[in-house]
Design a protein around this nucleic acid. Structure first.
Length: 569
RNA sequence: CGGGGCGUGGCGCAGUUUGGUAGCGCGUCUGAUUUGGGAUCAGAAGGUCGCAGGUUCAAAUCCUGUCGCCCCGACCA
């Protein structure tokens, strides 16, 4: 391809709306444009990247026994009513009506459709297992689309659904997908971690996330440096440190703490570390108030809390309601004498002489002791894991914390959808049974953003070779110099002949412009043809991720470039 | 949905407080000179100031409504 003919409108300045690197750089590099909030057009360079990602995904799904199909994006409400999700999905679903006022939606996911398809045409255990997948646009009317492709309302996703005769079969399918996903992410050339995850609203039990590591990521994961355990902080179990030597319980005392509301303020005021304090939070769990306690330096984990309580819906009570019930504002709550359902984190049980609010504004208690001064209904694991925690599995290592971008998620669904949608089969005994399902997603467009988020510098994108729009960029410094252009054209022809994906920057632009664009669009290998080196019969070969270039004889360019590419292929 | 901010040539912005007939940089087009890290000079095109009402002799500017976008929060494969 010739740059003079390629549609890649690069921008000199950052678009004002772009906050994070991937959004900014994909936009400036002429790879994406916004069409509406959370809806993007993929320009040729960007689309080439997406195709590369899709192809890697496709090859690995096929290798694992998946069969690709195409599913409708417009889906009838009837299917969603059957699964019960027409209501549950709420405002996040794009809904529309046809001319007869029949309800449809733009598919946010495809469990319903695929299960319906399988229900119609699969009836025997002989037809199972079945692994079906699609790579298509999906639609979610996000509350707040943001960060460009990272959280868009229209996005490309690969979803594979597995259908098995029983749990054991599903385990096999799940394992296949786990391995296939690992291969996909290896091939994408991205640093990632597989972590145990909460299965959330999708349902089911076992679940893993594939998280591309990036400091700007929205997911926080922890991993154990000694046993290899890794999990999303929302999922990771927390075990209390073994109790150090027991302090002597002192007498409960109420003290004045005027205007001291936050944990931070109280710490400073009393000159105590935050882990000596207890945070009291009030939730409304299905309309019923519940108070929960965690150590002052910990964060409550609402997912765990919800799971423990077994309720459908929880939210923080608002301050006004709390004031009504307790008589104190948020900053002064505490468990002592609190007349409300009370749960405490496991760690709280081990605390001695702790500090908490006195349920009276501007007062706190000190020397509070669990069991003596208050008694929760139970001590349970309801905090989020953090770096530095004891590993809950080997109980030896410390957890390290890192941020990342969730780009893949695999779930064991079980029979939730097959039962709701009636996807049953006859087993070898003629018994009718629901199929056991799994579902496995990769956010293709999100992978593109994550790749940039992880691989860029101040000048632009640094694509991993496996998903770069082109492998090689040939830059004749001055196309008005006949010799330079001639050499560039020859190398270009030679590489095309050799099947290398090559872009020739034959634009009549100044060198600076071409180099800036080259850095921005991030093609891994740059071959520069300039007058100085050309006199010695040489050209420059530069890797995008390295600062310096090497001089190479013209006759050797092809081999040099080939070996660079193959080293990463 | 709550809080904050912004809509002015393709992009980035000034002008709005204090109404007076729209400006800067980049980009685009023509010509010349240039050609190893976003060239220089000369010329040119391109804007119903998001949209709709209202106030006024006069509105980008003031008022009302509305649409869109961005950020924070709640939410989330």
């Amino acid at each position: 391809m010739r740059a003079s003919e390629l549609f890649f409108p690069t921008l000199r300045e950052d678009p004002s709306e772009a906050e994070i690197a991937s959004h900014r750089l994909l936009y400036r590099a002429g790879m994406i444009r916004k069409t509406a909030g959370g809806v993007y057009t993929y320009l040729p360079l960007g689309y080439r990247v997406l195709r590369k990602i899709m192809n890697i995904v496709r090859e690995e799904m096929d290798r694992a026994g998946g069969q690709e199909l195409g599913l409708p994006i417009i889906q009838p409400a009837e299917l969603w009513t059957r699964s019960g999700r027409w209501v549950v999905y709420g405002d996040e679903m794009f809904r529309l009506k046809d001319r007869h006022q029949r309800d449809f939606c733009l598919g946010p996911t495809h469990e319903e459709v695929i299960t319906d398809v399988v229900d119609h045409d699969v009836h025997s255990y002989r037809d199972l297992p079945l692994l079906l997948y699609q790579i298509q646009n999906k639609y979610r009317d996000e509350i707040r689309p943001r960060f460009g492709l990272m959280r868009a309302r229209e996005f490309i996703m690969k979803d594979l659904y597995s259908f098995d005769v029983d749990q054991e079969g599903m385990n096999v399918s799940y394992d296949k997908m786990y391995k296939a996903y690992s291969r996909v992410f290896d091939r994408l050339g991205l640093a990632y971690r597989v972590v145990e995850a909460d299965s959330g609203a999708i349902g089911g039990s076992v679940s893993h996330e594939f998280v591309v590591l990036a400091s700007t990521g929205e997911s926080v994961v922890v991993f154990c440096d000694s046993c290899g355990y890794a999990a999303n902080v929302e999922k990771s179990a927390c075990v209390p440190e073994p109790r150090a030597e027991q302090e002597i319980a002192l007498t409960l005392q109420k003290i004045s703490t005027p205007e001291q509301k936050t944990i931070q303020e109280v710490c400073r005021f009393l000159e105590l570390p935050s882990h000596r304090l207890v945070k009291t939070l009030v939730y409304m769990a299905d309309e019923e108030p519940v108070a929960v306690l965690v150590r002052g330096d910990r964060e409550i984990n609402e997912i765990k809390l919800k799971n423990h309580l077994g309720c459908n819906f929880i939210e923080m009570a608002d301050e006004w309601t709390v004031k009504e019930m307790v008589g104190a504002n948020f900053g002064s709550l505490g468990p002592v004498g609190l007349k409300m359902k009370l749960y405490a984190d496991l760690e709280v049980e081990q605390m001695t002489n702790l500090v908490c609010g006195a349920n009276e504004d501007d007062y706190h208690y000190i020397n509070v002791n669990p069991g003596r001064d208050f008694q929760p209904l139970a001590f349970i694991d309801i905090r989020s894991a953090q770096g530095g925690d004891l590993c809950p599995v080997c109980r030896e290592g410390k957890l390290e914390e890192t941020r990342g971008i969730e780009t893949g998620h695999i779930f064991q669904l079980g029979t939730k959808y097959s039962e709701a949608m009636g996807a049953k089969f006859l087993d070898e005994n003629g018994q009718e049974r629901p199929m056991v399902m799994g579902c496995y997603g990769i956010g293709v467009s999100r992978v593109m953003a994550a790749a940039v988020e992880q691989n860029h510098d101040e000048h632009g994108i640094i694509w991993p070779i496996s998903i770069a729009p082109y492998h090689v960029l040939i830059v004749p410094v001055n196309v008005n110099n006949a010799e330079q252009l001639d050499v560039a054209e020859r190398i270009y022809a030679m590489m095309q002949e050799a099947g290398i994906e090559v872009l020739l920057d034959d634009r009549n632009e100044r060198a600076g412009v071409k180099f800036k664009d080259a850095d921005l669009i991030g093609i891994p290998v740059r071959v520069t043809i300039g007058s100085k080196s050309l006199q010695a019969g040489q050209v420059e070969v530069k890797k995008r991720w390295e600062k310096d270039y090497e001089l190479v004889e013209i006759a050797q360019v092809l081999d040099t470039v080939r070996s660079i590419i193959s080293a990463f292929a």
